[in-house]
Every structure is written in structure tokens, then in C-alpha cells.
Design a protein around this nucleic acid. Sequence first.
RNA 1: GCGGCCUUAGCUCAAUCGGUAGAGCUCUGGUUUGUGGUACCAGCGGUUAUGGGUUCGAGUCCCAUAGGUCGCCCCA
Length: 422
Amino acid sequence: MADKLSTDPYKGVRDFYPTDWARMQAMFARLRQTLALWGYEEYNASPLERAELYEAKTSEEIVNEQTYTFTDRGDRRVTLRPEMTPTLARMIAAKRRELPLPARWFSIPNVFRYERPQKGRLREHYQLNVDLVGAPAGEADLEIIMLAAELLKAFGAKESDFIIRINSRILLDAACAAAELKGESVKRYLHLLDKKAKMTPEEFRAAQSAITSKDPLAIIEDAGQAPAVAAEKRTLLDAIDALKARGVGNVIFDASITRGFDYYTGIVFEVYDTNPANPRSLFGGGRFDKLVALFGGDPIPAVGFGMGDVTLADFLKTHQLPISADDGAPQLYLGTPSPGDIPAAQAFAATLRDKGGRIFVNLTEKSLGDQIKDAVKRGIPLFMAYGKDEIANNQARLKILATGEEAGLPLTELPARLRAGS
RNA sequence: GCGGCCUUAGCUCAAUCGGUAGAGCUCUGGUUUGUGGUACCAGCGGUUAUGGGUUCGAGUCCCAUAGGUCGCCCCA
């Protein structure tokens, strides 16, 4: 006899029992609801992708060390998607001639990364991806950032609960150029900026001087001397003013926001939790105008963001924002006084289901008392016994378990009562 | 990939210096066989994560492995 099989899920991934999944779906439902109001359509794709999709344009670390990549039986190299954006770019590129652009698309895919699990990061998580494809920088950027803020507000978050930090890759590039940084040095400098928040000012200055004798951040700060930098900075500050004018007040310019992926080409932003106990990045995104062109043809500009389910759930919990939605759980527990009543109860349940009632029918030989206990444990709000007496008299007792209150009513009235939610 | 801490019943946790593995909750049954929740009673439930080592004796000390968790690296 072999060892017993483990009931643990695979390292770094989660099981979703019905109550867990109901909570996830409730959270997703709120996102979908808001996105639908903004005219965004949901798409999806397989988690399996050709490995080469990620070898061109993400960051090397992710491709080489943090993906699940294997060779299939047909010698194809396959990767479990570590992010959705390349898939989106591929899908857009494939139908570029027929899709009506701009396209407002979103998806809530599970994505995979092979790395050590830790706080807020697992090997599989669900990530809302929202993208506006086919519109250039400007209004599209503003819409995406407004929508990002709106999604959090839809859960009841206030502007004081989070802050949106905005930067621009063009601005950074201009500043690096003004500081006479080129090629690899630019990459190294952007990487350093990304870590700035975790360093002391002294550490940062020391690391910066190892890359450049000039100070790109100072050039951005005092943009007068570099016209290209000044123009980009003006554009970004105008965007921030526009967002404020449209009701997004918690947005600031932050020259140290870079985002990890190489494919960003314009505005980049990151949303931070303002809770002092948990001041971390919640999610972010930016503009990627050259990604779709990797599949051939003219570039199609795009902007979007990704939001992980774990960090979102943490945010909601931190700020005590409830997730509530109809989880589709049964409304009525149909009890059977004796096992012989089950066939008739099933038939009766079928008539209630036709009217939209969510009915749970007892299948056990337990006493009615135990069936009521069972209903309470399952969280089903209503209980009704259905047996010979009820059928003979066309009369049932509908019990509200929370209060113990009972109401007698003819069986034929039940569908109406269920619809009324009482 | 590197480091800290952790792993005892289904769950949350006890177990003194290394000396007989326990409790609460859950679950099952009963008091209570056509109507629950409270209360009381009883029961089920363990190779102390796994594999080695030290010891007369290991849940306890040591090593390794796995998993969890937190940080680093990196980042969605």
C-alpha cells in the first residue's frame, strides 16, 4: 500500500471551497458590474501559451526563473501565463483588421509564477486585467486611471484610503538622456529608481553615483535646463490636473515609479494603500504602444492595468470594506418527514425551481429535527417539511430559521413567497 | 535562489527540567422518533509533518527533507 495521498494543495496555490469561491466571485462580480458600466467587455484565453510569447518583451528574470515552462509531447515549449498582457496583445493583433477599435476589454485570468510564496504573493493568483486598446496617449490614459480609482471606490473605498502615483517612461527617458545615460545604464538606473522607496537617501545617492555623475531626478525637479524634460513633465502635470478636475483627487506625480516590465512606453502608474500599517503597492499599469506590433503590422497603442485578487482582498480587509453579493446559495431547505417522501419532494422542488427558487432537498433519513439542524448549519434561511400531511391538506409551515417564526400557507403560494425573498 | 520563525486530533491550541499526549470547538449519538438553536451526557478522533540521530527514555535536543509563514532577491 502506498503512502496516503496528501490533501494539501500544491505549494503556493489555493483551494477554493464553496464559501471561499463565493467570496471571490462576489468580489469579481463587483468588478464586473463597474466595468460593464464603463463599457468594458470581458474576454478570456487559455492559461497555456507558447513560451516564445514571453521571451521577447517581458523582463528576463520572469522568463528565465519565474515561469512554469515545459516541453509538451509534440516538442513545443509551453508556458503557463505569468501575466495576461502578452495574451491580450496577441489576441488583438490576430484580429486587428476586424476588431472595432478602440477596444475596451477586461479579463480575470489566473496567472502563474514560479517563486517562493510570501505575503500577498502566491504561485497562482487571479488578476483583473483592464485594457483600452487602439487609443493614443491622452484621454485613454485618463480614462484608465479614473477607472482604476473607480473600481476601488465601488467597494466603498474613500480617496484617503489609497493614492495613485503617476510617472512617465518618456519623461524618465528624457531625463536619462539629459543626464547622458545610455543603453544598459538607463535600465540600471530605472531599476534603481524602482527600489528607491526601500532605501535611505544616503544609500540611494551612493547607488546613483555609481551609475551616473548627474542626477536625473534633479533634472526632472528643475526641468528648466532640459526642454524635452520640461515638455514631458508639463504633459504629465496637465494629466494630473485633468484627473483632479474629473474627481480623482488622490493622484500625485512620483518620478520614482517605473514598473518592472520593459514594454511600457508612456504613462505608468501605481496605486498605493495609504494605511500606515500596510503602505504597499496595490496594483498598477501603464501605456504599452509597441507590444501589439511585435506580431507584425503597424503599432496599436494601448494602456491598461492589472490588479491581483490577493492584494485587493487584503486592501478591502485592511479598510474593513465588506464584500457582499448574492452568492447563489439555496433559499429553502425542503425537509422530508420520511425517506418515502423524497420523490414527491424532488418533484415539488422542480416546480419551485421553475419559478426561480433555489431549493435544497433533503436526501437523508434523519429526523425532521436533525434536518432543521442541518439547514441551520448550511446557512439556508428557510425550512419547510414536505410530506403526506402537507400534500393531503395543501398546507405547509414555512419556518424562518433565524427567528423561529412560522407561517402557514398553501403550497401553491410558495413560489410567490420565495420570489419576494421572505 | 538566500535567511528567520513555525508544524501536536478535522480546527484553535496545551503538555513545567527530556519522564503515562490533553482541552475547547467541530463531528457522531443520546436525553428529545413530524419541527432546530440552549443545556447536560457519551462517543469518534493521534506513527506529535516525514526520515534519520542522541538518550534508559524524545512532542521536547541535533541533522536532513517537505509544507506553512515572514523578510531578502525579484515583481503581477
